[in-house]
Computed example of a mutant assay.
Amino acid sequence: MAKADRTTALVLYVWSVFMHVSRLSGHGINELLYFRVISPEDIGYIFSAAPAKDFGGEFTASYDEIFLVPADPADGCSELQDREIIQGQVILVERGSCSFVQKARHVEEAGGKAVLIADNAVDNDSQYLDMITDGSTTKPSIPALFLLGRDGMMIRRSLQRKALPWAVISIPVNVSSLASFPLKQPPWTLW
Rank of each mutant, 00 (worst) to 15 (best):
residue 63 Y to S: 14
residue 64 D to K: 15
residue 65 E to F: 05
residue 66 I to W: 11
residue 66 I to V: 14
residue 67 F to M: 14
residue 72 D to V: 10
residue 72 D to P: 01
residue 75 D to W: 13
residue 77 C to Y: 14
residue 78 S to I: 12
residue 78 S to C: 09
residue 80 L to V: 04
residue 81 Q to N: 11
residue 85 I to Y: 06
residue 85 I to V: 14
residue 85 I to H: 05
residue 86 I to E: 04
residue 87 Q to G: 06
residue 93 V to S: 13
residue 97 S to M: 13
residue 98 C to G: 00
residue 98 C to S: 05
residue 101 V to W: 00
residue 102 Q to N: 05
residue 103 K to N: 09
residue 105 R to G: 07
residue 108 E to F: 01
residue 109 E to H: 03
residue 112 G to E: 04
residue 114 A to T: 03
residue 114 A to Q: 03
residue 121 A to N: 09
residue 122 V to K: 07
residue 123 D to T: 08
residue 124 N to D: 11
residue 124 N to F: 02
residue 125 D to H: 13
residue 126 S to H: 05
residue 127 Q to C: 00
residue 131 M to I: 08
residue 131 M to N: 04
residue 132 I to V: 14
residue 136 S to M: 08
residue 136 S to T: 14
residue 138 T to H: 08
residue 140 P to G: 06
residue 140 P to D: 06
residue 140 P to F: 08
residue 140 P to W: 07
residue 141 S to H: 12
residue 147 L to H: 04
residue 148 L to E: 01
residue 148 L to K: 01
residue 149 G to I: 03
residue 151 D to I: 02
residue 154 M to E: 11
residue 154 M to K: 02
residue 159 L to K: 06
residue 162 K to S: 10
residue 163 A to T: 12
residue 164 L to Y: 01
residue 164 L to S: 00
residue 165 P to S: 10
residue 165 P to F: 04
residue 168 V to A: 10
residue 170 S to V: 07
residue 172 P to L: 12
residue 175 V to N: 09
residue 179 A to V: 13
residue 180 S to D: 14
residue 180 S to T: 13
